[in-house]
Nucleic acid binder design. Structure first.
Length: 128
RNA sequence: GUCGCAGGCCGGGUGACCGCGAGCCGCUUCGGCGGUUCGAGGAAAGUCCGGACACCGUAGGGCAGAACGCUGGAGAAAUUCCAGGCGGCGAAAGCCGACGGAAAGUGGCACAGAAAGGACACCGCCUCCGGGUAACCGGCGGUAAGGGUGAAAAGGUGGGGUAAGAGCUCACCAGCACCGUGGUGACGCGGUGGCUAGCCAAACCCCGUUCGGUGCAAGGCGAAGCAGGUCCCGCUCAGGCGGCCCGCCGAGGGACCGGGUGCGCCGCUCGAGCCGCCGGGCAACCGGCGGCCUAGAUGGAUGGUCACCCUCGACAGAAUCCGGCUUACAGGCCUGCUACGGGA
RNA sequence: GCCCCCAUCGACUAGCGGCCCAGGUCACAGCCCUUUCAAGGCUGCAGCGCGGGUUCGAAUCCCGCUGGGGGCA
């Protein structure tokens, strides 16, 4: 794992494309029901191993209304999608990353890299 | 120039790299790849009104219910807009107003006060009668000017008048009715008359106008999948048509347990559309001509990094669409007007 | 997204436009009672979500915000 924000060479997949997202309510239910959860001050991460251990990891974002207005929630999702693939993610897992209240206010007073560090924090704690 | 008022507009900009959604074109091993063009708001918000559109066994009648309420106009309609009237606020520009009816009925007006609506007079005032030396006391009456209470007290102010008083009489003002006159009208102005009729309808209500329900999770097409069971009511009026009645439909309806699906496409953006010019109208708006196509996502598209500039950037993110209303909003620009001050 | 409902002390609730600077229960604080605690008695603490309007007068009626809760595939 690399601490810098730019570890990837051009051409390598560095974004959360649509096929790398959770898109169905059923997928979310699976992760919640059968996955394991880990919490930090700003996030709750649910992880669930898929049947095919070599498939690409997928991400779902859960941003409740309690974190802020629609503008704040949208912006948070964009930034999280941006920051997510900057680090290696374990293949064969579905993740649901849920934001907790206070995250938006904290992110506004820090910079973009700070948000990445918070995501790394919860991933490490989950033992990925 | 300063202060204020009204109306309109903008809502950081430029460039580079990496990314996101849609349309079109090309390539494709059908997984995608490349190019190109577009890609959130004035409120997209609250969901407070009104429609379009879609569906519903009957969208039928009456009652009930709800909403609205000065006049004229605009508009598809509206708790909408424009102009005008009246009332209130302001020195003015201007702003605000659910602004029909209280002599159709019902009801209310706490406390205080004599009395809260056709007054029955508490303190009082006055004539007369009786008593008393007198101060004064008692009584039959006449009054409502003054005091006091209250949010509100039976037209107000002044003169005359009277025993004291009273629209009793007179003038002015307010209010009412009628006549004339101006205006499409609300209403204004003038005259005459009689001399008074409290407030509350965002209390019930009366009058007038309008209103079927549900909402794109409407609704349509396709694909996939499953498993039924128990009980109650009914075909001898159960059930449905908003609450009731009539009337109509009508053979199945309901409760609980269990099982399945929870996918793709359409609806989905060309519309009461936007821009410009001309004409009509005080205006809202309407008409004509020319031009333009301007988000359509579906776990839900606008972000990250860097550089420079400035006044260091508010409220805030489309989800069927449109017309309004309301609410939030850093800073800035333009136009017109009022008052005051200064100059020519 | 669309459509509904609610709001009164810290909590649960009463409250025909004036008898209400809003009543009750639990909780909290103090005092009495008791050897002490509990129970009981007395006293206090505190509230009409916010802003306008109607009315002489609003928790109550009307309008607009704000904050909660629910339903619809």
């Amino acid at each position: 794992m690399v601490a810098s924000g730019y570890p990837l060479s051009p051409g390598e997949a560095r974004k959360v494309e649509r096929r790398h997202r959770l898109s169905r309510s059923r997928d979310f239910d699976n992760v919640y029901r059968h996955g394991r959860s880990t919490s930090t001050r700003f996030f709750t991460l649910h992880a669930f191993p898929r049947e095919d251990a070599n498939s690409e990891p997928r991400l779902g974002l859960a941003i409740p209304r309690s974190v802020g207005s629609a503008v704040k929630r949208n912006r948070l999702k964009r930034m999280l999608r941006e920051v997510w693939p900057l680090n290696d993610r374990k293949a064969g897992f579905d993740y649901v990353l849920a934001a907790r209240p206070g995250l938006v206010e904290a992110a506004e007073s820090h910079d973009f890299d700070w948000l990445g560090e918070r995501v790394d924090e919860v991933m490490e704690k989950a033992g990925s």
